[in-house]
C-alpha cells in the first residue's frame, strides 16, 4: 500500500496536532497527533483508561485541551479550529456530531421529537427565532414538515419507524444506540464521533450497526471517528486505526497494519488474532440465531 492512498494524509477532514490534556497532575492525553480521512471510518482504540473519551471530549469542545490544535474542514471548504470553540459551536459550525458512551437520549420525548431537537438550529431560523413562530407567520410549517421527513428518513434507516411516537426511554438498549446515532446524523454533520457504539450489543446488533455505519458513509458522505472495543466492528469496517495507550499514540495505520503491530498486540490485544477470532466464533454460536431484542409487545397492535 502506498502512502498516497491514505486519505488521512492526503485529504483529512480533521487533523489533530500535538493534543495534550492534563487534569491536575494527570496527563490523560499526551502530545497526540493523528488525522481523520474524509469519507473514512477511523477507529480510535486502546485499553481502558487510554484517554480515548478525553480525546473525544476535546474534539467536541466539552473539554478545553491544555495544548494542541484541532483543525476541522467540513465539505464547504471552511476551516475551524475546534480548540477555540465552545461545544455547541463545534456541533453547529464545524459540523461535528457525537454520541456518548452512556447513552444520552431525551428519554421522556418521543423518537421523532429526539430527531427534531437535533434539527434545532435550522428550525430556529425557520421559526424567525421563535417570534414569527408564536405569531403563526412565516414558513415554519413547511420547514417543520421537511424536518419531520428528514427524521422519517433516519427512522427508516435505523428500522424504528413504527416506534416513532413512543418515548425514547422505552426502547431496548440496542435500539437506543441506533437512535442516538440517527439523532447525531440529523444535525447534518461532516464528522460523526461515536463513543463505543457497539458496547452492550449482541453480535447480531453489532452486525446491523456495521451496516448502518457503512451506509452512513456511503449515502451521506459523513466521515466517522469511533471509539470501540468490539474488534469485529473495528476490523470489519474501519479504514484506519489509531491506537492509544496511556494517552500516547502507539500505532496508526490500516487495520491490517495495526493488527500485526507487535506493540499493539502487546499493549492492547494481549492475545493472538486466532484467539480473538475463536472468541468471536463462540459468541456467534451463543447469540447468533434468533436472539432478537425487539421490545415485548404492549403496543404490538399499533405497529403499522
Amino acid at each position: 500500500m502506498t502512502t498516497s492512498l491514505r486519505t488521512w494524509d492526503s485529504d483529512a477532514v480533521l487533523a489533530v496536532e500535538h493534543l495534550t490534556m492534563r487534569f491536575g497532575g494527570l496527563v490523560a492525553v499526551n502530545d497526540l497527533t493523528f488525522s481523520v480521512g474524509r469519507g473514512d471510518i477511523t477507529a480510535l482504540i486502546g485499553p481502558n483508561g487510554a484517554g480515548k473519551t478525553t480525546v473525544f471530549n476535546c474534539i467536541t469542545g466539552f473539554y478545553k485541551p491544555t495544548t494542541g490544535m484541532m483543525s476541522m474542514r467540513p465539505k464547504d471548504g471552511s476551516l475551524h479550529l475546534l480548540e477555540r470553540m465552545p461545544d455547541f459551536i463545534v456541533a453547529r459550525k464545524a459540523k461535528v456530531a457525537r454520541t456518548f458512551q452512556n447513552i444520552r437520549l431525551f428519554s421522556g420525548m418521543t423518537l421523532l421529537e429526539n430527531l427534531l431537537v437535533a434539527q434545532h438550529n435550522p428550525l430556529m431560523i425557520a421559526s424567525g427565532m421563535t417570534i414569527l413562530g408564536v405569531l403563526g407567520i412565516g414558513g415554519y410549517k413547511a420547514k417543520e414538515k421537511e424536518a419531520i421527513d428528514r427524521a422519517r428518513y433516519w427512522l427508516d434507516k435505523i428500522g424504528l419507524t413504527a416506534r416513532a411516537d413512543d418515548p425514547a426511554g422505552d426502547l431496548p438498549y440496542g435500539a437506543q444506540r441506533r437512535l442516538e446515532i440517527a439523532r447525531a446524523m440529523c444535525t447534518g454533520p461532516d464528522l460523526l464521533c461515536l463513543d463505543e457504539p457497539a458496547a452492550g450489543l449482541n453480535p447480531r446488533e453489532s452486525a446491523e450497526l456495521n451496516d448502518l455505519l457503512l451506509s452512513i458513509r456511503r449515502d451521506d458522505g459523513t466521515s466517522i471517528l469511533l471509539i470501540e472495543h468490539d474488534m469485529s466492528v473495528v476490523m470489519g469496517i474501519s479504514d484506519h486505526v489509531v491506537v492509544l495507550e496511556y494517552g500516547t499514540k502507539i500505532a496508526d495505520g490500516t487495520p491490517n497494519e495495526t493488527r500485526n503491530d507487535p506493540r499493539v498486540i502487546a499493549a492492547y490485544l494481549g492475545v493472538e488474532d486466532e484467539e480473538v477470532e475463536e472468541i468471536e466464533q463462540e459468541l456467534d454460536e451463543q447469540f447468533g440465531d434468533g436472539h432478537d431484542e425487539q421490545p415485548a409487545g404492549d403496543n404490538e397492535g399499533e405497529r403499522a
Binding site: 456541533a91 456518548f100 431537537v117 415554519y140
Partner: peptide, 22 residues
Amino acid sequence: LPIGRAWEALREDEVACRSLGI
C-alpha cells in the same frame, strides 16, 4: 416550536443538547 422542544430537551439532558449544537 423549536425553542420549546429545546427547553424540554434541556430538562432531559443538557449535555446531549450541547452536543446537538443548541
